[in-house]
Amino acid sequence: MIAKKVLLVGNFGVGKTSLIRRFVLNQFAEDYISTIGVRVSAKVVQYENTAIKLLIWDVAGTSGDEKIPKAYFLGASAAMFVFDVSRIETYLNIDHHLESIKTLSGLQNITIVGNKKDLLTQEELQLVVERVSVNIDLITSAKEDENVENAFLELASQAIK
């Protein structure tokens, strides 16, 4: 089976871990993760009749001042940047974040996901879409299980490109 390393990055509290938890069952305890700043989960997805094993690295933080080993970004085939649609500070510097992820990982394309859609009305969401400086690939809710599967399928499709 094809196996791919994929990254989930984004500010603290945007819902990365919640999205993964929706998608896979996790084995490693939270407190452990906070020590080394990453958690790896595995999930097999079917994409266009191919089974792909995703090794999902939930990386805490993207900017240089965090104590995250650069090596976490190496060898990844795709990355998802998650922000919180209800918190402007999580997408305000999105360009900067994306650049640094691209530099660290060597990836060209990054899947952009706005999470916690359940917290906003349709109108408010529309405003967010306009305000975010890049194209949003998917708007999700880990809480209400909306679009979560699709977000990971998109990630899988990026990974095998």
Binding site: F28, A42, L55, G75, S77
Partner: peptide
């Protein structure tokens, strides 16, 4: 090395989640 992907393994017993263990 970089990706942490398991390319091969041997075990005397059986290990669950060896891909995850290899990543971690």
């Amino acid at each position: 090395k970089d990706s942490g992907l398991l390319v091969g393994n041997y075990t005397r017993g059986s290990i669950a989640d060896k891909d995850m263990v290899s990543g971690m």
